[in-house]
Design a protein around this nucleic acid. Structure first.
Lengths: 348, 348
DNA sequence: CTGTTAGCGCGTTCAA
DNA sequence: TTGAACGCGCTAACAG
């Protein structure tokens, strides 16, 4: 009665639709339809089938179904890193929506490496997923891999680190305004020489934040010192070295605006090593989603993005693509607001 | 020359093995073998096939392959939450190994809910993944769903929040010792009344940490006050309420040992609200993987687990199961060491 | 070294 | 309302 087959080098009993059919003296197609709750099947048969399925602990093979339906019930999330509360929160939002829709979530980490991003994009042309959500790597300055992916018909939603030159939906935050507010905050704390720290010269969010920074300086008649606009890599040790040089050099700033949490943390580490007091001697503001109280971080003022909501909105938009055939060319550009959370710096 | 088919409600050109065969005047199976670099195929043919595949931008359909081979090239990671540096780091390690092995990683979040965990476990019987790595939810006090999954032949590796009553590999840390060390650390800081805060009364790691806590108290002749051994839920507001009551009640402790980072943070938040000074009036130690400098958290002493390494080891063990048919009954119990990182509290 | 053939498990025509 | 038969795209057994 029970069929055995070697599966992955081990014995596994496989209950399939055929076995249900045999046990119930019904045809395979009837079973299939009953399980899919088709209108063509009588209620009596349906319940008989369901009961037998339950009894034999039947689980439909997702790959057979995907092959037949050309639908994987799976989405991909491609992000630079996961050890970053922003992305962790975004995944939380994405996963929430995916669970609602009975979808599965594949995770791909580029580690800020464009080659990996290209590799994932190329690979995902094969139908493994029904759509992807992506936040670009800091190295990404060319979008051919994404254009090709899109041309294959794979729906793409960008979030946070978006690509504006591709016509697709995106969810992001008011980076220009936040950059402006962050800089103005430091100015209002008395800073005269404010450094801007960033990971990338390519990302749209980086450039918008920087523009905000520059506008704020201009507004307050502070001249822009190009030497204080700095780019870093994924290498923390190197980054700290650079920051250390900046903080001991002739252009030493009295305020730092870090566009990424990890650069703020690197700055903190350097300050501790150099015995620079924060915020007395140096004020720091940073984009960050660390969920810690001000007691834990008495001197960290942050710009906090609605990360969970961003993930959720991005997923919802992706499902809008997936659920309605005529939505493929209806793109949404959603811009959410970030929040400046003042802490120690203001009290200083 | 190019075949079209409706895919997911949209037009998609599908280049399959058959088309390559036609274009090259070869049989389908030859193509298949050439692409899989089979020894039976001549180098000339192989390169011809590869070039044509490249030219037509051929991507093998993973679901067809999985259906045929009974192998999904996919693993599942089931964890309680992702907004927690421990799990984020663990995923990082897992993903590193998976990328090496050309595997795909599905993420499932239980949100500390046993019903979700059961749902995932039952669902994953269907062959969607070749194996799973799991860290139990704090509610999990029954393992039937996992036993059934294992009986279906799905390899399982437990990490951190393991299940000792199921014969399978696991990776965890020296929780008893860490609990002991954490408590002794507080005692050496002068604490006489130490509270133990935990999420669960079921998890093995919780119990081991608590045993360590109790042993340390005993060793130093401090009697155990059951009212200071507290369990919390996933509801932060409720947790802070409970902590607040504890810190204002007659049994007010002078030290807190939080077995989970979020409980330490809740404690910090409460202290801030109640104007309790840390570490002067209350010392706190916590399991935590926050990657922040001591400047950022001047008063947080932590027990840090080698989270990345745990993820990596867990994945490696899973692949040991997957790669060798005779490894299914060879289980490894790996116990890594955690590190106590003293901060403000010691200086206090 | 290559081709022919037969499924993997399911969904969906078409026919009854 | 149900059944028979075909094929999704690929791999593997068996021939040659």
């Amino acid at each position: 009665m029970i069929k055995f087959c070697t599966f992955n080098h081990r014995l596994l009993m496989s209950v399939d639709i055929k076995m249900l059919a045999k046990n119930l003296n019904l045809s395979i197609s009837t079973i299939s339809r009953a399980l899919r709750d088709s209108y063509e099947i009588s209620d009596v048969t349906k319940t008989r089938v369901r009961e037998m399925a339950e009894k034999l602990n039947y689980h439909p093979n997702p790959y057979a179904s995907s092959l037949r339906k050309h639908k994987s019930m799976t989405i991909a999330v491609v992000i630079p890193e996961i050890t970053n509360n922003f992305f962790a929160l975004a995944i939380n939002g994405i996963e929430y929506v995916a669970q609602e829709k009975n979808y599965h979530v594949l995770i791909y980490l580029t580690h800020e490496n464009i080659k990996k991003e290209i590799g994932f994009a190329n690979h995902l042309q094969n139908g493994r997923v029904d759509g992807i959500m992506i936040s670009l790597s800091s190295e990404t300055n060319n979008y051919d891999h994404l254009i090709e992916l899109k041309s294959k018909g794979v729906p793409i939603v960008f979030f946070d680190r978006i690509c504006e030159s591709i016509e697709s939906s995106y969810i992001t935050t008011d980076d220009y305004e936040s950059g402006f507010a962050a800089t103005e905050h430091l100015i209002s704390c008395g800073c005269k020489k404010i450094a801007y720290l960033d990971l990338s010269r390519y990302l749209s969010i980086s450039n918008k934040r920087m523009l905000g920074y520059m506008s704020a300086l201009e507004k307050h008649h502070i001249s822009i010192d190009e030497r204080l606009v700095m780019r870093f890599t994924n290498n923390n040790a190197e980054n700290e070295e650079l920051i250390s040089k900046m903080l001991t050099g002739p252009n030493r700033p009295d305020g730092i605006f870090a566009s990424v949490e990890k650069l703020a943390i690197a700055s903190y580490n350097v300050c501790e090593r150099l015995k620079i007091k924060i915020p007395e001697q140096l004020k720091i503001i940073s984009f960050s989603n660390l969920e810690i109280s001000s007691l834990l971080s008495p001197s960290l003022t942050t710009i906090t993005q609605p990360a969970y909501e961003i993930g959720k909105q991005a997923a919802l938009q992706l499902f809008r693509y997936l659920e309605k055939k005529n939505m493929m060319n209806v793109h949404e550009k959603i811009i959410l607001k970030s929040t400046l959370i003042p802490r120690g710096s203001t009290r200083a």
